[in-house]
Amino acid sequence: MNYAIGIDIGGTKTAIGLVDQNGSVRVKTSLPTDQTITPEIMVDRMADTIKNMLVGEGLNESDVLGIGVGAPGPLNTKEGKIAEPPNLPSWWNFPVVNSLARHFSAPIRLENDATAAALAEKWLGAAKEAEHFVFITISTGIGAGIYSHGKLITGATGNAGDVGHFVVDPAAGTCVCGQKGCWEYVASGTAVARQASALLGREVSSKEAFDLAAAGDPMIGPLVQKIFQYIGIGCVTLINTFDPEKLVIGGGVSQVGAPLFDAVKAYVSKHALNPSGRKTPIVPAALHQDAGLIGAAALIHIPY
């Protein structure tokens, strides 16, 4: 059996797992992404965790085909660096691939986490049969992985798919990137919580906001419908740009389920430019809890 190590670096935790050639997670764990220490020390902790994981499973490094790393962008995958992700300020310009290579001789590949998740959905999830699809993750922010003509579209430096910074509503306010009204500024889980909290005058999570809307709250209900419309606008932009045969939506906000998907499909059916685009299937992601790990490992297991 051949194995890959998957590392999914997030702003608050880093998931690490051993994934076999069939996509099964043999063992996994997670570490806090401690931004009070240097990234080098954090990588040392990751390496120790991987080595202990291999010993615990009775494996050697020679049993590992490689290490795949998914991380939030912007990245520079050509140089193996984490560039300037807003939620990892202490990691800016950090050469994560070279740092890991201090500990391992196996090949190491770095890609945007949404790009890696798209590859996982192609391998094992909701896009197995698709040769042209876009995977969209809507959670703290919004990102995408683009798969077209049978391969991942990663761009010159690995940052294709930063769709959260499409401008959707310039009147809505200033995004962290400095533009006005970016898609993730108006439609991410963070955006839902921010706008609902402002309406109610208290702290509201995105989950609570969606629950209130489902219960018929007269203030939050219209907000959530506007959020669904914003998500539809972004989906129409992706359909018009890439002509996919399918959109796959994952991330925490996708857990809202039918109300979200029904609203987005209705918007797309009216506003996508191409008649065939108006019928684009829009489906939930199949991989949830371990998507990041499997996606990172897929960078090793699956040609892309």
Rank of each mutant, 00 (worst) to 15 (best):
I7P: 08
I9E: 05
T12W: 07
T12V: 11
T12Q: 05
K13Y: 03
T14N: 11
V19N: 04
D20N: 15
Q21V: 14
G23L: 09
V25N: 04
V25M: 04
R26I: 15
K28L: 12
T29W: 09
S30R: 14
P32F: 09
T36W: 02
T36D: 13
I37F: 11
P39L: 15
M46P: 03
M46D: 04
D48Y: 08
I50N: 06
N52P: 00
M53C: 03
L54M: 13
G58W: 06
N60S: 12
E61Y: 04
V64T: 02
V64L: 10
L65W: 06
L75Y: 03
G80N: 10
A83Y: 15
P85K: 12
S90G: 03
W91P: 10
F94V: 02
F94W: 05
F94P: 03
L100F: 13
L100C: 14
A101Q: 15
H103K: 09
H103N: 11
I108F: 10
I108H: 06
R109N: 01
L110P: 01
E111A: 13
D113E: 04
A114L: 08
L119R: 01
L124I: 14
K128P: 03
K128S: 05
E129I: 04
E131H: 04
F133A: 02
F133E: 01
F135T: 00
F135E: 01
T140V: 05
T140H: 08
G145S: 10
Y147E: 00
Y147H: 04
H149R: 13
G150K: 08
G150D: 09
K151A: 08
L152H: 01
A156V: 05
A156H: 07
T157G: 02
T157C: 09
G158Q: 02
G161H: 08
G161E: 03
V167T: 14
V167P: 00
V167N: 02
V168P: 02
P170G: 01
A171Y: 08
A172V: 05
G173D: 04
C175M: 14
G178H: 11
G178S: 10
K180V: 03
G181A: 06
C182H: 14
W183M: 14
G189I: 01
A193P: 03
R194C: 05
S197E: 05
A198C: 00
L199A: 02
G201L: 08
E203R: 09
E203G: 07
S206L: 10
E208D: 06
E208R: 01
L212E: 04
A213N: 00
A215F: 06
D217A: 05
D217I: 09
D217Q: 02
P222Q: 07
P222K: 06
V224H: 07
V224A: 08
K226F: 06
Q229R: 15
T237V: 12
N240E: 11
N240I: 09
T241A: 13
G251C: 13
V253Q: 09
V253N: 08
V253T: 09
Q255V: 02
V256T: 14
G257S: 07
A258S: 11
A258F: 08
K265N: 13
K265C: 14
Y267A: 10
S269Q: 13
K270P: 00
H271V: 06
A272L: 13
L273N: 05
N274I: 07
K279T: 14
I282H: 12
V283C: 13
V283F: 15
L287Y: 10
L287K: 07
D290F: 15
A291D: 01
G292R: 06
A298Y: 03
I302Q: 11
P303K: 01
P303E: 01
Y304P: 00
